[in-house]
Design a protein around this nucleic acid. Structure first.
Length: 893
RNA sequence: GCAGCCGUAGCUCAGUUGGUUAGAGCACUGCCUUCACACGGCAGGGGUCCGGGGUUCGAGUCCCUGCGGCUGCACCA
């Protein structure tokens, strides 16, 4: 028995969603199981940072995955969606460090162990937050399989991978310039350095020429404080201004060191003064120049970007920017500052610390990338991996063919500690999963583990197989690994294509000899309504909870998905949620209406199932409905097959609202009159009508469920007896071309045209909708068969089938059919005359176009027959319409 | 500077391989509380598809070019 009483008038999502969430979770409907004979469909969720808050990006990304998973589950695959969280080494460490600092605790004072205790505490306290936030979205992942990148099993995989790479010669230690974040006091990756335009100065500084008092070279620099590290000044070899000085020496101001003047084509003659100070330890380009000229290295900074003991004592310990100010003042005082020119420049800002980075000399661990990059490139080149949108492949190609070795060590504590053990006695380095007892070389017992941590991405790159305890699987895990890996698709933002996607492919190819996934879907970036990126500092990120509270989860999901077009950013504004909210409400109310009538006609709604809609009904209305339904099944199916999410939702939206509700349900109404006034045959027709309507509704719920899981499940539960079951496990309607009857669609189009024609005349003369009208239709009544009562109901008009036009009437064409709306008593003739004249003008215009086209011999000769035929039909139709309209006009004058 | 994406109604965007009269939501106008829904119904107004050239019988769609916006990469010390 259907629970119609469970339907409140408007749909109120709040309470319902909470109950369903619990229901789903308690029944563990989404547990991923290996099933014989079923094809697996696997997605690993991009693990959100444990530090994270739920953003619109998460909503979008996870809803998209959920749609794919739910659809494939309902299509009969064994769906497996594995969730998890990322320890986010540097981001989390920054948060914990700040929390401690707020309590007056310096992390370096308490030491590694104590710090990690705080970090774990923090993770236990806040790490679950993002998970519970994700759950509110109704994502259908298998929470029993949740993985944390610093969990024991996963950590083991991370270490195993590095050790293997080391033993196979792909990990090495290098001493070079790195991107240094003075706040985190760690190396950071190129991808974590964001270039920003800043207003700076070009300081023109005099470097006296050695042995030639009164003469000097003017060096233009944006970073005067690094002059303490200068090892040369360079000019262009062809620069005549300085040709005589090459090979001589100049004096570095303040610290009074003599350095050579060298010639290098790196210098641009036109820029600044054409003289560049060369500071190899603090600039990437200078480093290269230094190597070419064998200048050596002179580091003048500490890890926190204060000046070190290699600079004059007055500057030691000063922050780089404090030192800059002081230095410029001193240069000016000593007459060594020629001038200061304002200068716009691009500065690398640390994503982590929010301050300009330093290029800093240090020893770090690297992974050789050329071979790995080659593997990733061949995955796309041979088609094993497809990127969506495809143009991302250009970016992919460029990055991978210009790749630099991957610096994997970080001067952090929160993360996987490097498995590198150095012998205290002989300095020999071991890379092992477990700490060796003694040095393999000298036998000494004291081995010291490298204090650095691995880059976060050196753990998450194993994600697609690491989630199955790759390092040490038990029998079950091994079977899972074989069944659920490789995965089908990864859904993620385009910003982590290099950080994560490319490296997952490398890891998959290298460690498992498999391409980790077949497709990469890059989600749109969500911007605010003005097109700005969402950021904390702008405060333009919507409060997802507030949105869910105001509109409901389904509304949020539907509304955002309806804007997803491959490769396009989304400009989001919160009131877009109205779309989904009203849509959910619409379906809800349509259901109420049908249940009400089911009851009236004794149809047991709980027993009506989509699966019983096996053949197309004979009745025109029902046959048409079935055809339209399977048409949208096909279109929705095609859209999601092409990963066109908005195509999927908009096809369903249009069908449900405009076809099913606005036409079909309305056309049903005459059949839902008082049963006691009906003949047995009429009652049977009404019952059949309700049955088909409910079958289609069931189909709609299944199609919509992946996007709007809550409202569809609730309706489904309300209609039937489904305790312990979920709509999410009902099979998805499959395309059935045999169920589509083009002639039924065409026949119904004529019905719709006639109704619309009458309504248009009514509307244009503002005739009260309640007023019953008389309409004459120039066609045989038999043409419309049983649909006449429906037409009369929707048009609110009594229909006569005849060629006799009433004296005063509004004329309209419905397809090829003339429709005359009797206007006697509603309007005066001049109003209809005006309307007809306008209409005639319009038709003449189109007619002219068609005539011209058909008059063109080339068109008739070259265009496909179908198109030419179409034009001919249009010509005939327009000519007929024109004639009818002119006759009507004549009749009025 | 190099590469990619985009420019369609007041706003946000659809528009599959070129093909009848270019669509939706929101906003706007008129009429309607008709027994599913006013979170609703019916009807309507609103577009030189960024500009210019080309290919074609035919271009919003393909090619060239200019302008504007966004993104990625590389950069000037």
């Amino acid at each position: 028995m259907a629970r119609r009483d469970a339907f409140d008038k408007p749909f109120e999502p709040g309470q319902i969603e909470n109950q369903l969430r619990e229901y789903w979770e308690n029944h563990k409907f989404y547990r991923a199981k290996r099933e014989d004979g079923k094809i697996p469909y696997t997605i690993v969720m991009p693990p959100p940072n444990v530090t994270g808050d739920l953003t619109m990006g998460h909503v979008l990304n996870n809803t998209q995955q959920d749609i794919l998973i739910r659809r494939n589950r309902s299509n009969g695959k064994s769906a497996c969606w594995i969730p998890g969280t990322d320890h986010a080494s540097i981001a989390t460490e920054a948060k914990v460090t700040k929390m401690l600092a707020d309590q007056g605790i310096n992390k370096r004072d308490i030491g590694r162990e104590e710090f990690l205790k705080h970090a774990w505490e923090w993770k236990e306290k806040y790490g679950g937050r993002i998970v519970s936030l994700l759950k509110t979205l109704g994502v259908s992942c298998d929470w029993d399989r949740e993985v944390f990148t610093m969990g024991p099993e996963y950590s083991r995989a991370v270490i195993k991978a590095i050790v293997r790479l080391y033993k196979e010669g792909l990990v090495y230690r290098g001493f070079r310039l790195v991107n240094w974040c003075p706040v985190s006091q760690s190396v950071i990756s190129d991808e974590e350095v964001n270039p920003e335009e800043r207003q700076g100065n070009l300081w023109h500084i005099r470097y006296p020429v050695e042995g030639a008092p009164g003469t000097h070279l003017i060096v233009a620099t944006t970073r005067p404080e690094t002059l303490f590290g200068d090892l040369a000044v360079a000019v262009h070899p062809d620069d005549e201004r300085y040709a005589g000085l090459i090979g001589k020496r100049v004096i570095v101001p303040i610290c009074n060191r003599a350095i050579p003047v060298i010639a290098d084509t790196y210098v641009e003659k036109e820029f600044g003064t054409g003289v560049v100070k060369i500071t190899p330890a603090h600039d990437m380009n200078d480093f290269a120049v230094g190597e070419r000229h064998k200048l050596g290295l002179l580091n003048v900074m500490n890890p926190d970007a204060t000046l070190n003991d290699k600079v004059p004592s007055a500057y030691q310990g000063l922050d780089r920017f404090v030192a800059r100010k002081k230095l410029v003042a001193q240069l000016e005082a000593e007459g060594l500052l020629e001038k200061t020119v304002p200068h716009k420049m691009v500065v690398g800002i640390s994503e982590r610390g929010g301050v300009p980075i330093e290029y800093y000399l240090s020893e770090q661990w690297y992974i050789k990338m050329d071979g790995l990059a080659e593997m990733a490139l061949s995955a796309t080149r041979n088609g094993k991996l497809k990127l969506h949108p495809p143009h991302m492949e250009k970016i992919w190609e460029y990055w991978l063919t210009n790749i630099k070795d991957w610096c994997i060590s970080r001067q952090l504590w929160w993360g996987h500690q490097m498995p590198m053990y150095t012998c205290a006695s002989c300095g020999h380095v071991h890379c092992e999963e477990e700490k060796p007892h003694k040095c393999e070389k000298c036998g000494h017992g004291a081995l010291v583990q490298d204090s650095d941590c691995l880059d976060t991405w050196a753990s998450s790159w194993l994600w697609p197989f690491g989630v199955h305890n790759w390092a040490n699987p038990n029998a079950e895990q091994q079977k899972d690994l074989e069944y659920f890996y490789p995965t089908d698709i990864i859904v993620t933002g385009p910003d982590i294509i290099f950080f994560w996607i490319a490296r997952m492919i490398m890891a998959g190819e290298y460690f498992t000899k498999t391409t980790a996934f077949k497709d990469v879907y890059f989600t749109p970036i969500i911007r605010d309504s003005k097109g700005r990126k969402m950021s904390k500092s702008l405060g333009n990120s919507p409060d997802v909870h507030a949105l869910i509270a105001k509109y409901g989860t389904d509304a949020l999901r539907f509304s955002v998905i309806n804007q997803v077009v491959l490769g396009q950013d989304i400009y989001w504004s919160d009131d877009a949620c109205d779309l989904g909210k009203t849509f959910a409400n619409k379906i809800w109310n349509a259901t109420r209406f049908l249940l009400m009538n089911a009851e009236k006609f004794g149809v047991v709604a709980s027993e009506v199932r989509f699966d019983d809609l096996k053949a197309r009904p004979q009745d025109t209305l029902l046959g048409w409905m079935t055809s339209e339904f399977f048409d949208v099944v096909q279109r929705a199916h095609d859209a999601i097959g092409r990963l066109e999410f908005a195509g999927y939702t908009s096809a369903l939206y249009e069908f449900v609202w405009m076809v099913y509700c606005d036409w079909f349900v309305e056309l049903c109404k005459p059949r839902f009159a008082d049963p006691s006034t009906m003949s047995a045959a009429e009652r049977k027709l009404s019952q059949d009508t309700i049955t088909t309507a409910l079958q289609v509704l069931d189909g709609i719920l299944r199609l919509l469920h992946p996007v709007m899981p809550f409202v569809t499940e609730q309706i489904w539960q309300n209609i039937g007896e489904h305790e312990g079951k979920t709509l999410g496990q009902s099979p998805m309607p499959q395309p059935r071309p045999d169920m589509i009857d083009a002639s039924a669609i065409a026949a119904m189009r004529e019905v719709q045209s006639v109704v619309s024609a009458v309504r248009t005349v009514r509307g244009q003369f503002a005739v009260h909708p309640g007023a019953d009208m008389k309409v004459t239709i120039h066609a045989a009544k038999e043409k419309f068969g049983l649909m006449v009562p429906q037409m009369e109901f929707l048009a609110r008009a009594a229909m006569t089938f005849s060629s006799q036009r009433p004296a005063l009437c509004g004329t309209a064409m419905a397809g090829g059919i003339e429709v005359f709306v009797d206007l006697a008593g509603f309007v005066d003739p001049s109003a209809e005359r005006d309307r007809l004249e306008k209409k005639i003008q319009k038709v003449e215009q189109t007619l002219e176009g068609v005539r011209k086209r058909l008059g063109n011999e080339e068109f008739v000769k070259s265009a496909p027959e179908k198109i030419v035929q179409g034009a001919r039909e249009q010509l005939a139709a327009n000519e007929k319409e024109l004639a009818v309209l002119r006759d009507s006009l004549k009749a009025l004058t």
